[in-house]
């Protein structure tokens, strides 16, 4: 019962945090440099990680499907299955899970350390808002950088599949590409890419919320960071199911 109460309390506080952040974030003066700095930290510096994860997952999927489907004479279906899986699901989900680990840990520990060293109080005492100076730039940067990284992960993952398909499975690369383009539709991309905005929102709000909730010194920072990463990952994985359903409904309208 206590856990449910805590969960509902955290949900309510996160909701309030987002509302207040959006309220102060768009007020003048608008400091775009803070957002650009965070886009660099969250986005640009995550590129190697996303590249490795995306290309590896694309290659592994092509390899596994290649050997699995070969048993049933279905190797020719590898381009369709791999590209569809990556575009609709694996590309954004894998990328966002890795980003949840990197970005959530980074944001929560940074904000948490600022909280325990009274820097957050100092921002308030100097007549400024931590929501505007700290939370909003991170939220905005996540909403920009994470979908872009997810889109890159989708493309890189498909290319990874193509490399293994042509080099390991002996499929003609022209054939592979042709199958990708004939299989994939715009709504497949929208479904995968669209989810990444929600995942970015989960990552940003969770990590900022846990960072600002830190109590009890450095041990508290570690505890909050762990909770933040775990919660972000759970939200992505569980949210993915509902978002898939949601985008399926949207696809029917399109």
């Amino acid at each position: 019962m206590k856990r449910i109460t805590e969960f509902l309390e955290a949900l309510g506080k996160s909701y309030k945090l987002v509302l207040e952040t959006l309220k102060v974030g768009f007020q003048r003066p608008f400091d775009s440099q803070l957002i650009l700095d965070q886009i660099y930290q969250i986005g640009v510096r995550s590129i190697p990680l996303v590249f490795i994860v995306a290309v590896s997952s694309g290659m592994v999927m092509a390899l596994q499907f290649g050997y699995g489907l070969a048993k049933f004479g279905g190797k020719l279906y590898v381009p369709k299955i791999v590209s569809l899986s990556i575009v609709r699901e694996m590309g954004p989900v894998f990328a966002c899970l890795m980003l949840a680990a990197r970005v959530s840990a980074g944001i929560t520990s940074e904000i948490g350390s600022m909280k325990v060293s009274q820097q957050i109080d100092a921002i308030r005492a100097l007549g400024t808002s931590p929501l505007k100076k700290i939370v909003f730039p991170r939220l905005a940067a996540c909403m920009v950088a994470i979908p872009m990284l997810s889109a890159a992960a989708i493309i890189i993952g498909v290319i990874g599949g193509l490399i293994v398909g042509s080099m390991e499975l002996g499929l003609d690369s022209q054939f592979y590409l042709q199958k990708i383009f004939s299989t994939l539709k715009l709504h497949d991309f929208i479904s995968g890419f669209g989810k990444s905005f929600f995942f970015a929102f989960f990552i940003a709000t969770t990590s900022c919320y846990f960072g600002l909730s830190v109590t009890g010194g450095t041990q508290g920072v570690g505890y909050a960071t762990t909770k933040s990463v775990v919660t972000s990952c759970i939200l992505i994985v569980v949210g993915d199911y509902f978002l898939t359903k949601f985008f399926m409904v949207i696809e029917q309208w399109l």
């Binding site: 820097q119 109080d121 100092a122 308030r124 100097l126 007549g127």
Partner: peptide, 15 residues
């Protein structure tokens, strides 16, 4: 807060 300043025990500088 513009007219009341607070001097923190540890300085609370932005690191």
């Amino acid at each position: 807060r513009k007219k009341v300043a607070y001097v923190f025990q540890n300085g609370a500088l932005f690191d």
